[in-house]
Amino acid sequence: MKKPEEVSNPPCHLRPFKRSTSLAIWPNSPQADSGHLAFSNKDWRNMWPQIEWQACNSCSLCLLFCPEGAISWNANRLPIVQEDWCKGCGLCARECPKNLIAMIPQTHR
């Protein structure tokens, strides 16, 4: 289990959630804290972007074109894919100017 700050960038991040069974602590109106994510999307995908880091020049286009915000930088400013949010759409692979991303079959079911 990864720590929350590693699976997503703030302010949106996965936090533990337990549905209340008490009216006293039910939301006061149909509202909730923005960016509070209760569930991972990891079981949505059937493809996974495998990134070839050696030749990566950190151009950031894979981060830019991800509709999920699922790609972030690691400590060496290389792109890492967050497994909670990647849906395997392949846009990062399509946009990588050096063709360093390969979409490989993967499911989490």
């Binding site: 703030p10 999920e68 846009l91």
Partner: peptide, 16 residues
């Protein structure tokens, strides 16, 4: 563009 993400974990289709 900052590193901060303000739209994550949504239920949109892949490639939306």
């Amino acid at each position: 563009l900052p590193d901060d993400e303000y739209f994550v974990g949504h239920k949109g289709c892949g490639g939306c």
